[in-house]
Amino acid sequence: MKLKEAAKTSERFTGGHRLCSGCVAGPVTNLIMRASKNPAVVGAATGCLEVSSSIYPYTAWKDSFIHNAFENSAATVSGVEAAYRSLKKQGKMEEDFDFIAFGGDGGTYDIGFQSLSGAMERGHDMVYVCYDNGAYMNTGIQRSSATPKGANTTTSPAGKVIAGKQQYRKELTDIMAAHNIPYVAQISPFKPQELMKAAQKAFETKGPAFLNVLATCPRGWRSRAEKGIELTKVAADTCVWPMFEIENGEWKLLYKPRKKKPVEEWLRQQGRFKHLFKRGNEHIIEDIQEHTDKRWNYILERCGERQ
């Protein structure tokens, strides 16, 4: 999307919400909502975005909004979308609508995974957006299956014998692609026009679309508030968060760093990885590098790019 075009879109997720300073879920949501061309019904899973944007009697959403519970934003919005199809079919309403479900990585990768899979498989015409900040930030930084290996969280703390989270993160974007839905993208907000373009594609797609968006959490990542967007660029340049889309089964790379940077650059800027730089933990960083390289090569191969 061209910058001029983007600037003309209206703000539908307004200021005055109570997200933390430096939280990237806010700008991600704002950009995605700007890409919608119809009135929308927005669903949100219980989580940071939800508790910060709709505290009775206020709302930061200019569109209709529904929060049901933690694990069911996909099922809830699928019900809204089914109602829309039914009423439209019966001639009881005319207007076009967009349907969006937002969830953090907790509500998406973990507790809401079944509900998401069901909604995608059934083919509802909706966009599911995961703002992935890599832990349960709303309840105080507990590990999720999206938490990167080595990260210090309150349920995978770096201790005397265990150095933070032991497992690699789950590749949810690939799992969504395996649902053979028409549009899946893994993106980052440091390329706002790319993000809006992907969101626009997702809205224009007939059927389900899934967007996985990296969203810095300065509290959980132990990073500087003003570095939020910049860190998502570091994630792309170190290839820990590759940006790609799968449109009707075709994989396409959306960002290739000019020069791939070592993962240390990503790890060093975040307090949650601080313990990895202690003597004796070098092998963990080596493992993370190896895993990142393997994953990056896999993505390149899937996207038909040269390694």
């Binding site: 099922a75 699928s78 019900g79 089914a82 109602a83 829309y84 509900s115």
Partner: peptide
């Protein structure tokens, strides 16, 4: 739906939708 949890969740969505 793929479960009763989603059955009630989707029914809530559909009812709230109008």
């Amino acid at each position: 739906v793929e479960s009763e949890h989603s059955a009630m969740s989707a029914t809530v969505g559909a009812s709230a939708a109008g």
